[in-house]
Simulated assay, not measured.
Amino acid sequence: MDTLIIGNQSDPEIRERVIRAWKTGKADSTARLDFVNLDDAWKLLSDKRRQIMHAMAGAGPLSIREVARRVGRDVRAVHSDVQILHHAGVIDKTEDGRMVLPYKTIKFDFTLDAQKAA
């Protein structure tokens, strides 16, 4: 999979996708990271974390120090943000401990339903 879609779907939509993959034995052709709550998505996708993702895009495996240099931030703060992105499944860790953004494309697909927001 070379594409990650980050978006929001309801619990029933997420369950339906998982059940379909389980029954057919075939996963979706793209990786997905969905949030039921948009506030949770915005917490994960802070400006600084999006900057990290942008700096890592297409760069291959990078050390935390190199990521920090690319975004012009303190190593400790970048380490914290990279770990959060790693635990969310956005960034992978190589065997030698470097971090890599494994996707060629990341799409953001958020829907704000006016009826549900009211």
Results as ranks from 00 to 15, higher is better:
residue 38 L to C: 05
residue 38 L to D: 09
residue 39 D to S: 15
residue 39 D to E: 14
residue 40 D to Y: 13
residue 41 A to D: 04
residue 41 A to H: 08
residue 41 A to Q: 10
residue 42 W to Q: 14
residue 42 W to R: 14
residue 42 W to V: 11
residue 43 K to Y: 13
residue 43 K to T: 12
residue 43 K to F: 08
residue 44 L to C: 02
residue 44 L to V: 05
residue 45 L to P: 05
residue 47 D to I: 06
residue 47 D to P: 04
residue 48 K to M: 07
residue 49 R to A: 04
residue 50 R to M: 11
residue 50 R to D: 06
residue 56 M to V: 01
residue 56 M to Q: 05
residue 56 M to Y: 05
residue 57 A to M: 10
residue 57 A to F: 09
residue 58 G to A: 12
residue 59 A to E: 15
residue 59 A to N: 15
residue 59 A to D: 13
residue 60 G to D: 14
residue 60 G to R: 07
residue 60 G to N: 08
residue 60 G to V: 10
residue 61 P to R: 13
residue 61 P to N: 12
residue 61 P to G: 09
residue 62 L to I: 02
residue 63 S to H: 12
residue 63 S to V: 09
residue 64 I to T: 06
residue 64 I to Y: 02
residue 64 I to W: 01
residue 65 R to K: 15
residue 65 R to A: 12
residue 65 R to P: 01
residue 65 R to F: 06
residue 65 R to H: 08
residue 67 V to D: 07
residue 68 A to G: 00
residue 68 A to P: 01
residue 68 A to T: 00
residue 68 A to H: 02
residue 69 R to H: 11
residue 69 R to Y: 06
residue 70 R to G: 04
residue 73 R to L: 13
residue 73 R to E: 09
residue 74 D to F: 11
residue 74 D to T: 14
residue 74 D to V: 13
residue 74 D to K: 14
residue 76 R to Y: 11
residue 76 R to E: 07
residue 77 A to R: 09
residue 78 V to A: 03
residue 79 H to C: 03
residue 79 H to D: 07
residue 80 S to F: 09
residue 81 D to P: 01
residue 81 D to H: 09
residue 82 V to F: 00
residue 82 V to L: 00
residue 84 I to S: 05
residue 84 I to Q: 12
residue 85 L to W: 00
residue 87 H to T: 04
residue 88 A to K: 07
residue 89 G to R: 06
residue 90 V to Y: 08
residue 90 V to M: 05
residue 90 V to P: 04
residue 91 I to Q: 01
residue 91 I to H: 00
residue 91 I to S: 00
residue 92 D to Q: 15
residue 92 D to N: 13
residue 92 D to H: 14
residue 93 K to R: 13
residue 95 E to I: 11
residue 95 E to M: 13
residue 96 D to C: 10
residue 96 D to A: 12
residue 97 G to F: 07
residue 97 G to L: 10
residue 98 R to A: 04
residue 98 R to W: 03
residue 98 R to G: 03
residue 99 M to E: 07
residue 100 V to G: 12
residue 101 L to A: 08
residue 102 P to F: 11
residue 102 P to A: 15
residue 102 P to L: 09
residue 102 P to D: 13
residue 102 P to T: 14
residue 103 Y to E: 03
residue 103 Y to I: 02
residue 104 K to C: 06
residue 104 K to T: 15
